[in-house]
Amino acid sequence: MMRHVLNLGLRLFLVCAVAAAGLGLTYSLVKDRIAQEEAKRRARAAEAVLSSIGAQPRESEELTALLQRDFPDLITVFEGLDEAGQRAGYAFVLKSKGYNFITMAVGVDLEGKVTGIKAVTNEETPGLGSVALDSEQYLAKFQGKGPEPLTLKVDVDAWTGATFTSKGIANGANMALEMWKRLQEGGEV
């Protein structure tokens, strides 16, 4: 009886071990490409949210490290530089809780106004939350809000059928405004 159970366990283990080795191999082959694609997507989103003030994003490791201590959901910060190379705003790429997790870029100008919002990855429920997060028209409603934290249903309506997603977007925008405030208080603006 004991030998039989051990035999079953051993065979199951062998299959799992081979599968794990195969997956590990695949992952090690593609992980650099995936990281590259994600970095590219973040940069594209940062560019999009800063385009309304005509600034170009430049990733800042220094500011990211500074802010990440207090904002663990922050992924990376881009500085928005205008044509003369002067700082014109920031783009914060951060994670916010919608129905699932939303990774989004929020642009904030020097006056603390939201310049734009764009989703980096959209894992919200297809057909419901994903539609709200993909809608440029809806995201544009957040533009110009701030520097005071905005309230959903007062400053911006919630999207019908996607309350959680709307909350996630609003919370993400507020988090970005808070970070902007922190940078300003620290004399960074």
């Binding site: 997956l23 992952y27 593609v30 490409r33 995936i34 694609e37």
Partner: peptide, 12 residues
């Protein structure tokens, strides 16, 4: 395992 392989590959 095969689904994960497809998933990882498509991510690129």
């Amino acid at each position: 395992s095969f689904v994960t392989i497809v998933d990882l590959t498509l991510k690129t």
